[in-house]
Structures are given as structure tokens and as C-alpha cells.
Write a protein that binds this DNA or RNA. Structure first.
Length: 255
DNA sequence: ATGGCCAATTTTATTGGA
């Protein structure tokens, strides 16, 4: 079973590429982030034509997440339903192919001193609270754009960037708190000593110079770790005309 | 070659992304 996550940076701008990528790569499940449109404008039928069922939690202009699957999708939950007044569509959960799949788009944070940074840290806490009572279920994957580069191997210039946005200790602590709930970072588990990036800045020749960060992650519960056979970033998808600034991250799970 | 920001909207500037 092949499972992927991809921040497409607007599904409208990326529809053709996303369809072509699905047709070529044929993942069983694909989580999307940054749809940047409402549910009724999501190209449901185009994905259906390729054999993918979809569940979306969209929002005009900003955010928006989805789960696509070759198998039927059930038990959909949108947002945390935790009583917090929050208009940002950043989280969707669903069951498909016998797995519990969570697609998340963590807040960027803007800058360390900003109000948005506090919102980011609070959002991680809300996610952890949502996950807490649900971890015992196991069989769960949390995939998405975490907007956190967990360690030096996830950063092109750690000497310069450590402490700045996406690489700060509070963000990394929030990320580790998710792991402590019982998740394993699938790619880092398979590649403990490799530099891996999933995002490259559009500006300043970020991709040609390979100045990237690994901020898109696939976390899996402990019961899935023995089934994990492969994990990688599809860098090819960052090339060519009108790419997203993120590349898809994929894992393979036996059975 | 992998190329000098991009996408959406408030559109000919501004905002947010990371």
C-alpha cells in the first residue's frame, strides 16, 4: 500500500499536475494540503475519473485539506470540534483501506514574535489533545505539512537557520510532543542519517541550489512500523513548469 | 539541466506562504 502527502499550494493551480501525478504514481491514498478553495469547487469528479474517492475540508483562499483514496472513504471528521472558534480548515480525518488517515496543514507561524506563531503552538496543542484519546486505536497515519523541520538533517543550513521560523525550539518541542503520543517519523526511521527535504523556496534559486527543508512528514503509530517498507520524497515533482514549492512525500506499508 | 517567487484577491497592489 502506497500512501502520500502533498502540499499542492492551490489545487486550482495544480489540478493538471496532481491528476498527472496520480495517474503515474498511483498511490492508494493521497493527503493534500493548501487547497485554497471551498469544498464545492474541489475537482471531485476529475479525481473520481481516475478512480479516487475524496473527502475535503476546504476554505476560500487559504488552507484547505483533503484525503483521496482508491478505496471508499468513511468516518470523516473535519476540524477538531473542540469548542475553539477557528475558521481555518487545516485538519481532516478519515478511514480508508482499513487505515485511519489524518491530513493536516499546520500553521506557518509567520515569525517567532507574531500572534500567528502563538496560534501555531496552540494548534499543535489542540491536535495533541484531539489525538490523545484516539491513539489507542492504532493503525493510524498523521500526514501533512507540519511546518516544522525537526532536526539538523532536515535543514539545508542548520548553522544559520536553527532558531528561526520552522527550526525553532518551541516548534520542535511541539513536534516531539506529537511523537511522544506514540508516533514514529516514517522517513527518519528508514533514513536516520540522510539529509531529506520536502520543500524548497520559490525564491533565490532554492531548488536548483537544493536549499530545502523537510517540513512535510508521515507519522505512523507503532503497530504500523513493522509494516513500513519504504519512504521517500518525489523530488521530480518539484521540477518543471508551475510546480508546488512542496514535493510529495510517500511511504509504502506492507499488506 | 532543477533556474532568478507564487497564488488568490482586495487585482495593476496587497497578503500570506515558509
Amino acid at each position: 500500500m502506497k500512501i502520500a502527502t502533498w502540499n499542492v499550494n492551490s489545487i486550482r493551480a495544480r489540478e493538471e499536475r496532481a491528476l498527472a501525478w496520480l495517474a503515474k504514481e498511483q498511490p492508494d491514498i493521497l493527503c493534500l494540503q493548501e487547497l485554497k478553495l471551498e469544498d464545492e469547487k474541489f475537482p471531485t469528479l476529475a479525481f473520481k475519473a481516475l478512480g479516487y474517492d475524496s473527502a475535503t475540508f476546504g476554505q476560500k483562499t487559504y488552507n484547505g485539506v483533503a484525503i483521496l483514496s482508491r478505496a471508499p472513504i468513511t468516518e470523516v471528521e473535519r476540524g477538531f470540534e473542540d469548542g475553539v472558534d477557528d475558521a481555518q480548515a487545516r485538519f481532516i480525518a478519515a478511514t480508508t483501506s482499513g487505515l485511519r488517515v489524518l491530513s493536516a496543514y499546520m500553521p506557518n507561524g509567520e515569525s517567532i514574535a507574531s500572534e500567528k506563531f502563538r496560534y501555531k503552538l496552540t494548534w499543535f496543542e489542540r491536535l495533541a489533545a484531539w489525538l490523545g484519546p484516539r491513539m489507542a486505536r492504532g493503525n493510524t497515519l498523521l500526514l501533512g505539512d507540519f511546518n516544522v523541520a525537526p532536526g539538523d538533517l532536515d535543514v539545508h543550513s542548520p548553522a544559520v537557520l536553527t532558531g528561526s521560523l520552522l527550526c525553532s525550539e518551541p516548534e520542535r518541542a511541539a513536534y516531539r510532543k506529537l511523537l511522544a503520543l506514540g508516533f514514529t517519523d516514517a522517513l527518519r526511521h528508514l533514513h536516520p542519517n540522510e539529509r531529506i527535504y520536502s520543500w524548497w523556496d520559490y525564491r533565490m534559486l532554492g531548488f536548483p541550489k537544493n536549499r530545502g527543508l523537510r517540513i512535510d512528514h508521515v507519522l505512523i503509530t507503532a503497530d504500523l512500523v513493522p509494516r513500513l517498507t519504504r519512504g521517500w520524497v518525489d523530488r521530480e515533482e518539484r521540477k518543471g513548469k508551475q510546480p508546488s514549492d512542496h514535493a510529495p512525500v510517500l511511504v509504502e506499508v506492507k499488506g
